[in-house]
């Protein structure tokens, strides 16, 4: 995973497999940068993800709560059709302050 920042946005480019085991590491790494950068917009880029189960949904929901608590927005991008379908099982697409690209 790589994290970059630009114009008030923080982008986390996720790579590899996301499951319960790897999500713990990703969560800690993203949160540590989020606290330091304090972005208006957090972008999670899934284009480098080769596998994801519902732990990826949990990861996104947790970051959504975090960005909303800080008054910001969350953007999810690069999702495959099946991963987008999994995200939508949570009803996330109907929430305010979250954008699917």
């Amino acid at each position: 995973m790589t994290i970059t920042q630009e114009n008030g946005s923080m982008t986390a480019r996720l790579t590899g497999e996301i499951d319960h085991h790897t999500a713990a590491y990703l969560r800690h790494a993203i949160d540590a940068s989020f606290v330091r950068i304090r972005p208006d917009r957090l972008i999670l880029d899934f284009s480098g993800v080769t596998f994801m189960d519902s732990s990826g949904v949990g990861l996104a929901l947790g970051r959504y709560r975090q960005t909303r608590a800080a008054g910001g927005t969350l953007v999810l991008t690069g999702l495959s059709d099946r991963d987008r379908r999994m995200m939508q099982l949570s009803g996330m697409q109907n929430k305010e302050g979250i954008e699917f690209r």
Binding site: A23, S54, S55, G58, M86, L89, S90
Partner: peptide
Amino acid sequence: PLFTTAGGERSGLGFTV
């Protein structure tokens, strides 16, 4: 759907998926 007893960041979608 969305039921979980684990708390934390579990989505409660395991059986649904």
